[in-house]
C-alpha cells in the first residue's frame, strides 16, 4: 500500500503544474481551484489501483483532470451560476506584466466553450491531435477543425 502511494505520488507530481493550470482555466477563484485540485487528486488516487497502464499515464491524467473540471462547470451552470468573463481573481497576487499576461490568458480561454477550452489547453500542453482526440473523445479531423475555429474565435476576441 505504501509502495502504491509512493508510485502514485511520484507519477502525479510530474503533472502537478499542468493540473493546476487546467484547474485555473476552469475555476473562478482560488478556493475553487484548490477544491478542484483536491478532487482531481482524489479521483486519480481512486482510479490508480485499477489503472493497468493500457493507456499512457499522461493521457489518463489529462482525461481525469479535464472531465473533473468540465463536470464541475456543468454543475455550476445547471445551478444557474454564471462564469464571469472578466477575471476578478488574482491567485498570484501580482500586478506586474507576468501576472497580467496570465489574466489575459484566462480571459481568452474562458470565453471558449468547455470542449474548446479542453482542446486548446491540451494543444498548449503540446499534445498531438491524436492524443487530444483520445482524451476528449473526438476524431482527429474534428480536433483539427475545432482548433481552426478556436483560432478564429481568439482572433475575433482580440479585434
Amino acid at each position: 500500500m505504501q509502495q502504491q502511494e509512493h508510485d502514485f505520488t511520484r507519477t502525479v507530481l510530474a503533472y502537478k503544474s499542468t493540473i493546476y493550470a487546467i484547474c485555473y482555466m476552469f475555476s473562478k477563484d482560488k478556493a475553487e481551484i484548490e477544491d478542484l485540485f483536491q478532487e482531481i487528486m482524489l479521483r486519480l488516487w481512486k482510479g490508480w489501483s485499477s489503472f493497468r497502464g493500457e493507456a499512457d499515464v499522461k493521457t489518463w491524467i489529462y482525461r481525469v483532470s479535464l472531465n473533473s473540471c468540465i463536470n464541475q462547470q456543468k454543475k455550476r451552470r445547471r445551478a444557474g451560476e454564471h462564469v464571469p468573463l472578466s477575471v476578478d481573481i488574482d491567485p498570484f497576487e501580482g500586478t506586474d506584466d507576468r501576472a497580467l499576461q496570465v489574466k489575459w490568458l484566462y480571459g481568452r480561454i474562458n470565453r471558449l466553450g468547455l470542449l474548446d477550452r479542453a482542446i486548446i489547453l491540451l494543444w498548449l500542453e503540446g499534445l498531438s491531435y491524436e492524443e487530444i482526440g483520445v482524451i476528449v473523445g473526438i476524431s482527429v479531423k474534428n480536433v483539427s477543425f475545432r482548433l481552426v475555429r478556436i483560432r478564429e474565435k481568439l482572433k475575433k476576441s482580440n479585434d
Binding site: 493550470a21 499576461q101 496570465v102 490568458l105 481568452r108 480561454i109 486548446i120 498548449l124 481568439l154
Partner: peptide, 8 residues
C-alpha cells in the same frame, strides 16, 4: 496564447 500559457 503560447507565451501566456508558458508564463502561467
Amino acid at each position: 496564447l503560447h507565451r501566456e500559457y508558458a508564463e502561467l
